[in-house]
Computed example of a mutant assay.
Amino acid sequence: MDGDAHIDTTVAHPARRYNYWLGGKDNFAADRASGDELEAVFPAVRLGAITNRAFLRRATRFLAAEAGIRQFLDIGTGLPTADNTHEVAQAVAPDSRIVYVDNDPLVMVHARALLTSSAQGRTAYIEADLNDPETILADPQLREVLDFGQPVALMLIAVLHFVHGDGAAQPLVRRLIDELPAGSFLAATHATSDFGTAEQRELYRRMVEERRSDVWTRGQDEFAALFDGLELVEPGVVSATEWRPDPDDQPMDRRHVNVWAAVGRKP
């Protein structure tokens, strides 16, 4: 595969912008410009990206170590960095199996090269979009790697806020959850404007209307509704930094995070 054949470097992409905020090198000028503009509105956005990644690490560790999950479907993978889903899961259970999904071809090029599984487990990669769950579910690699007769953890980390429109994310999540067996989990995070000032919220609303931002923030109630029918794992819907923090984690002002997080189990 020619990995660069259909990568448009002139248009910002969420995965590459996130990589920029995390201090990575796999981004282009358009990604950095977009990241800087968002940072001007929410100055702590880089901190939000870091705490979001830390939530992924803690949630994956919980799912593998405490919930006994051995299969993960990670949609909106992003560019490889430290503590990727399979690395955290396989550190607990080397036989864990992970399918990564992303719509950025650059992510897939890097993923295939860098996200290598343990000998006991397995990883696979699907180039697809969360907005098209049918394509994800129909991909033969998905059924080859994951056994849908056993619980699966659906990881939707910092991806749902790229689904625009009030109520638009819920049917996508529901379609994916409906495909999973009882005992499966949903782990998700979502950008929010709930913690910002009224001025920040108004400025951000204008940025979205003017297509200067591709992040569709949602409030706590709409995010919590994504878990309807699931059993929320304690502490429920909280700021990403407040979900089962590690003992040495320092408390953080929600205004510096601007991310809701939760984990739920399908009964």
Rank of each mutant, 00 (worst) to 15 (best):
F227S: 06
R218N: 07
T192L: 00
A198K: 11
A224G: 06
G236E: 05
S184I: 13
E209C: 06
E234D: 14
Q200V: 04
R201Y: 02
E231S: 12
F195N: 13
E209S: 15
G183W: 05
D214W: 06
L186W: 02
E179K: 11
V237F: 08
W216K: 04
T189F: 09
H190S: 12
G219Y: 09
P181A: 09
L186C: 07
Q220V: 12
E222V: 10
A188N: 04
V233A: 10
F223M: 12
G236A: 13
D178A: 13
L180V: 14
R201P: 03
R175V: 10
V208K: 03
A191Y: 11
L176R: 08
L226Y: 07
Q200E: 14
V208L: 15
H190N: 13
E210G: 02
V208W: 02
V233R: 01
E222T: 12
E179A: 10
F195D: 10
L186P: 04
V215W: 01
E199Y: 03
V208D: 05
Q220P: 00
D214M: 14
D221P: 01
A182G: 13
G196M: 01
E210Y: 04
F227I: 08
L180S: 05
L230K: 06
E209M: 08
V238L: 06
S239W: 03
V233L: 06
R205E: 12
E209K: 14
E202M: 02
T217Q: 11
R175E: 12
I177N: 00
F227C: 08
T192M: 03
V215F: 05
H190F: 08
D221A: 15
I177P: 00
P235K: 01
Y204K: 02
G229L: 11
V233M: 11
V237D: 03
R175K: 14
L176P: 00
E199V: 15
A198D: 15
V238D: 02
P235V: 06
L226A: 02
L226D: 04
G219K: 05
Q200Y: 05
F227G: 04
A182L: 13
E179N: 11
S193L: 13
R211C: 12
Q200D: 08
T192D: 02
L176S: 05
L176T: 03
S213C: 05
A191M: 15
T197L: 01
G196W: 01
